[in-house]
Simulated scan of single mutants.
Amino acid sequence: MSTILVTGGTGTLGSLVSERLRAAGHEVRVLSRHSPQYPVDLRDGGGLDAAMAGADVVVHCASSPRGGDDVAARHLIDAARRAGTAHLVYISIVGVDVVPFGYYTMKLKVERMLEASGLGVTILRTTQFHDLVAQAVGTAAKLPVVPVVPLPKGVQVQPIAVDEVADRLAELAVAPPAGRVEDMGGPEVRTLADLGRAYLAARGSRRRVVTFPLAGRAYAAFRRGGHLTPEHAVGRVTFADFLAASAHR
């Protein structure tokens, strides 16, 4: 069995990946600034060499919309080289190469850093998680624009279950490095407004969804569907399934 280091291992995706790898008998090291075993700060690399020592694989799930992913990736790459770690698996997003959105641009930069690192690398791009769509709509529903919920006009989404992505990452972690593998998309493409209405209905809300246009190249790219991959609609869990399951948690 392998020793596998998981960054972001306490997050929504990373925790599920860690669970699956442990269940398969692997030693899993979860990186966190507050971990009693592996206290690591990817922003400055502190504690990373000790955590990386003897690790066969790194699954890199840690990410921050506030920036700094490139700095974290540089520290991780350098530490992996020093430790002789054979394989680094990275989770990215469909459309990072065509949607000029800041967070996407940073994810693409990290992809390119990994590809140029000389390490064994596997990169998986997926569409947005169901949880993220629900969070976005839920946040919009809290805005003081009673009784409506404002959402961007003309944007489609192809959400996927985080559990299915965790299954795939755990599978890739124990396989040989494969470069960029096939994208993963959710089972259906629907407008964000439609998903918003479904979310509100599932929670018994009578608020009405109102769509509005935005400006900028990123919005235009989202409207063109640059973040979608209908040809790779491999997910099985629909947004309706997600909402039904959430109601019973």
Score class of each variant (00 low, 15 high):
147 P>G: 05
130 H>N: 14
29 R>D: 13
30 V>N: 04
54 G>F: 11
187 P>A: 04
165 V>S: 03
97 D>Y: 07
139 T>W: 12
2 S>V: 13
83 A>D: 08
49 D>L: 08
62 A>K: 09
236 R>Q: 15
147 P>T: 06
199 Y>K: 12
185 G>S: 01
186 G>H: 02
53 A>N: 10
88 L>A: 04
147 P>Q: 09
230 P>R: 04
56 D>R: 07
170 A>Y: 12
30 V>T: 15
53 A>Q: 10
194 D>H: 14
134 A>V: 08
96 V>M: 00
2 S>L: 13
135 Q>M: 15
55 A>W: 01
103 Y>S: 06
156 Q>M: 15
48 L>Q: 08
198 A>P: 03
41 D>W: 13
241 D>Q: 11
98 V>G: 03
31 L>G: 03
71 V>K: 11
87 H>T: 00
128 Q>C: 03
243 L>W: 10
36 P>N: 06
236 R>D: 10
179 G>D: 06
135 Q>T: 11
151 L>P: 06
139 T>Y: 14
202 A>V: 06
34 H>K: 10
101 F>T: 01
164 E>N: 06
205 S>G: 08
6 V>C: 03
117 S>G: 10
141 A>R: 15
102 G>E: 08
21 L>K: 11
27 E>C: 01
111 E>W: 09
249 R>M: 03
77 I>E: 03
153 K>M: 13
109 K>W: 14
61 C>S: 15
146 V>L: 14
169 L>I: 04
4 I>A: 00
238 T>K: 06
132 L>W: 14
139 T>H: 14
4 I>R: 04
34 H>P: 02
9 G>C: 13
177 P>T: 02
35 S>F: 07
112 R>N: 13
44 D>F: 13
248 H>V: 12
147 P>E: 07
214 L>M: 12
235 G>P: 08
10 T>P: 07
185 G>F: 02
26 H>K: 04
23 A>H: 05
166 A>Q: 00
243 L>P: 01
153 K>R: 15
206 R>L: 15
238 T>A: 09
135 Q>V: 09
29 R>Q: 08
249 R>T: 05
163 D>Q: 13
217 R>P: 13
156 Q>L: 07
107 K>Y: 03
109 K>G: 12
92 S>W: 02
26 H>G: 00
62 A>P: 05
139 T>V: 12
